[in-house]
Write a protein that binds this DNA or RNA. Sequence first.
DNA 1: GCCGTTTTCGGCCCGACTGTTTTCAGTCG
Length: 576
Amino acid sequence: MMNKKEIIKVLEQIAVYMEIKGENAFRVSAYRKAAQALEQDERSLRDIDDVSKLNGIGKGTAAIINELIETGESSVLNELKEEIPEGLIPLLKLPGLGGKKLGKLYQELGVKDRETLKEACESNRIQELAGFGKKSEEKILHALEEANTRPERLPIATVEKAAQFLKDRLASLEDVRRFELAGSYRRARETVKDLDFIVSTDAPASVRESLLNMGEIGEIIGQGDTKLSFTVIIDDDFPLSVDVRLVEDEAFATTLHHFTGSKDHNVLMRQLAKDQGEKISEYGVENVETGEVKTFEDETAFFNHFGLSFIPPEVREGRDELAQFPKDSDLQLISNDDIRGDLHMHTTWSDGAHSIDEMIEACRTRGYDMMAITDHSQFLKVANGLTVERLKRQHEQVRMYNEQYEDMTIFTGIEMDILPDGSLDYDDDVLENIDFVIASIHSSFQQDRNTIQQRLETAARHPKVAMIAHPTGRLIGRRDGYDVDLDWLIDLAKETGTILECNANPNRLDLSAEWLEKAQKAGVPIAINTDAHRIEMLDHMPMGVSTAKRGWLNADSVVNTWGAERLKAWIDKKQT
DNA sequence: GCCGTTTTCGGCCCGACTGTTTTCAGTCG
């Protein structure tokens, strides 16, 4: 029997094949919408009695889904596959090639995969085709070469530096009135395709000039009056695509909203506008009857115009955010201002770069009133993990600092390894006097699910273990986590009163937004921590908060908002 | 293909830019 994920994939595949076949674009997107409807429904396939009741799934797509459930195959997809070579599918990802053009290349030149496309370019047959030319041919060849070297989406951690560089650059330009980084970066997706900047200026030509004269420009992809596309190369790395929109200040809010997306969110907003006789574009909201265009000072005013309150970019995914944020909404998603402390960080005692008091001062600067010093335990020798003796000495120091600072509660802590054999790295009597014990896995990732889960269960059931850190162990774009059933882990955390972490390091973001959402529903408290190994890494906190927002977490689900006393009471409760 | 007290047909978000044309289709976000 096919699972939901596989069915979603089939529907999306059908859409892609139809696109190349040259089917009506609305028909194509109907299949995508059906896939989306399935994806956004939280229920498992078994719990949905009639798929055609879902909004976006009708007679046709329901028949396909039911056929898949019954037979594991789709006759529609099978027929499409007979008709259209599979090798064409990945070619759709090449910039500049859509379904129409690819269909033509297939029909007229017999292009059926990368190789035949390359040959067609090299034998100069493409420029002969109506609608194509010399430039198209060169672009396709170029795109084919690029596709080998560049991944499609990049983990946000890898674009952080370039994003900061461009922000600094724009901030330094006199002709820039205000600007913002929009797109999926602003929505805090885990990976991004490019960086989208919205820039308010009265002198677009000057800003364009300044940007294009930066030394870090790779190639200019396109430029018009309001739009500028180029690649930047920061750090001798790969080229990263950047889109800049230059707008007059009165259009800034609507342009920012438009290019923050998501596409699906924009569609919802535009339908809402249409229902009240208006039309949304980058430039404002037009009254269809009078043609009058209204502009807004900021996004809040824009949302208010439609009877909504400000919808955080992180939840603009075209789900039910419009219904969740009416003007008088009392829904308070977690925000940066709610965070009162950071409960996972390292110092020079293990593999951190700064001393205990340097970290304390850094946390005070960030306005916190609680924190935990959590170095590595003895098992992690490469990280200079603390022996029992060193641990005790460190904690004496931490307690001393805790006495010293009246405005900060400093918990003694440890990030204790869960060993490959399933045991914990310290004996109970060592753990006895520690305020905040974190348990985590740093070794033997390849063990089977059962073994991994036994390790996690030992930790979660231990009365002194307050939290499990980076619960999946993944590194985005680099390493999958270990094998764990997260539904199981969330149930276990709920049963044992164990906090789960949302690790704010942009390489991790672990748990991810979708699991945070499930954890909150189950009533499991979440801690958002930076796992900082140096002072600057404390500034990853907003990435964690944004991830939490994507998971619709409210402030009360996040222990960082509780304050030291309430947190301590929660930990104590587990031990009794 | 889906949807609907503006409903069973005729829409389906909207606009910029490119390369091809010589007024526009295709692609993209």
